[in-house]
């Protein structure tokens, strides 16, 4: 399995990279961690003529908590998220996610920005970022654009990024009082894409859920939020029947298909089960 030929650029600044994207348009592809792109190129499922390697650009790999939000550089490796004490203490949903992406070696190369920009509904970060209500910062020829995560994913492998825009930063709201989150994934074995994955971030005040966002992995043609499940939770105590209602709502609103990972019916039911479990875990963390 040998990739086709391409021309290679390794710009040292975002501006330079944008210039290349601008110049080569549809023929160019960004190489971030490469852990999805390079296998696709080896199978010649992807045959870009131009590869713009953004690994040489300084200053895109960081995890910083600022006054209002957590800022993550797009080129931050999954392993850095996984090993960050800050993230494991304050952003458990993200910590959960980073731990189950592919395998430990892939996580040393794979980047959070690449995972999102690839817009593969089988990837784990999209659901998590939907649950966090993340904000993305992209730079293009006209400067920075702020994109709300709800406006980012347009379809399979499709985002609202323009061809000449580069995802630079992911911003997560800082966890407020009473907030908790969790990501749970069913996989056939370690390293597998999710059979189903559920990301939840919620806030519980006086025993009642006051805010909740739920993202689902690999059960629709594009990364999706389980809005009906969120609605089932909000305003209620996250226990018993309400969990079941939320789970059922998520199961009903997702759009899985039958494949080697299971039938549509099975996947819907797993969404129900995993949604309930993820909510429970998130609520436990509120207490903790």
């Amino acid at each position: 399995m040998i990739p086709g030929k391409f021309e290679y650029f390794a710009p040292s600044s975002v501006k330079e990279a944008i210039g290349l994207l601008d110049r080569y348009g549809e023929d160019a592809k960004i190489l971030a961690g490469g852990q999805s792109l390079i296998p696709a190129m080896r199978f010649r499922l992807a045959q870009p003529e131009i590869l713009v390697d953004i690994n040489r650009i300084e200053g895109l790999d960081y995890i910083r908590e600022l006054d209002d939000y957590l800022a993550i550089g797009a080129m931050t490796r999954e392993a850095s998220l996984e090993k960050s004490a800050l993230i494991s203490q304050r952003y458990p949903l993200l910590a959960d996610t980073a731990k189950v992406i592919a395998d430990p070696l892939v996580r040393n190369m794979a980047t959070v920005g690449g995972n999102l920009a690839h817009a593969d509904p089988a990837n784990d970060h999209p659901a998590t970022m939907l649950a966090y209500d993340a904000t993305l910062v992209a730079e293009g020829p006209d400067g920075d654009t702020i994109i709300g995560i709800d406006d980012f994913f347009l379809g399979l492998f499709e985002t609202s990024l323009a061809k000449d825009q580069i995802l630079k930063e992911i911003r997560l709201p800082k966890p407020g009082p009473g907030s908790g989150g969790a990501y749970l994934k069913i996989e056939r074995k370690v390293g597998d894409y999710a059979v189903v994955g559920v990301a939840i971030q919620l806030t519980v005040e006086n025993g009642t859920v006051t805010a909740a966002r739920i993202g689902l992995t690999n059960v629709a043609g594009a990364p999706m939020r389980a809005k009906n499940a969120e609605a089932a939770l909000i305003g209620n105590a996250p226990t018993g029947d309400i969990l079941e209602k939320a789970g059922q709502a998520a199961a009903a609103e997702c759009e899985p298909w039958s494949d080697l990972r299971g039938s549509e019916e099975y996947k819907r039911d797993m969404v129900r089960i995993v949604t309930k479990r993820a909510i429970r875990k998130a609520v436990e963390r509120v207490g903790a």
């Binding site: 290679y8 390079i38 296998p39 040393n108």
Partner: peptide, 13 residues
Amino acid sequence: GKAVKSCTIFAVQ
């Protein structure tokens, strides 16, 4: 210093 899979990295990287 990091363990990586060398089949999924280009030599130029």
